[in-house]
């Protein structure tokens, strides 16, 4: 299984944490799309302690037992 942790406004798409079934060849984009989270609402993705922006992470392969964190952009002042 893959653990997907959602933060702040993204929690409306599934709460704090979702368990996602692993399958071969899975990439981050597959998980986000299957969870029906609009990609434009995600700013930063952490996959197994490696962080980067959505565009850099979206096509990364996800291995079994991975942990993914999804963060939205924030800009209030």
């Amino acid at each position: 299984m893959i653990t997907v942790k959602l933060y702040s406004s993204i929690r409306k798409y599934g709460g704090k944490e979702i368990m996602f079934e692993y399958r071969k060849g899975l990439v981050v984009r597959d998980i986000i799309e299957e969870l029906k989270i609009p990609i434009k609402e995600i700013s930063i993705i952490i996959l197994n302690h490696y962080d980067n922006t959505t565009d850099k992470m979206i096509d990364r392969e996800v291995k079994e037992s991975s942990l993914i964190h999804l963060f939205p952009p924030m800009a209030g002042g």
């Binding site: 702040s8 700013s43 930063i44 565009d55 952009p73 800009a75 209030g76 002042g77």
Partner: peptide
């Protein structure tokens, strides 16, 4: 520039700014 890439608005548009957060 990286974290706001292709973004024009953040979560504050919906969640606003409550008393305690600033």
């Amino acid at each position: 520039k990286e974290i706001y890439s292709n973004k024009t608005k953040g979560i504050e548009e919906v969640l606003k700014s409550p008393t305690f957060i600033p």
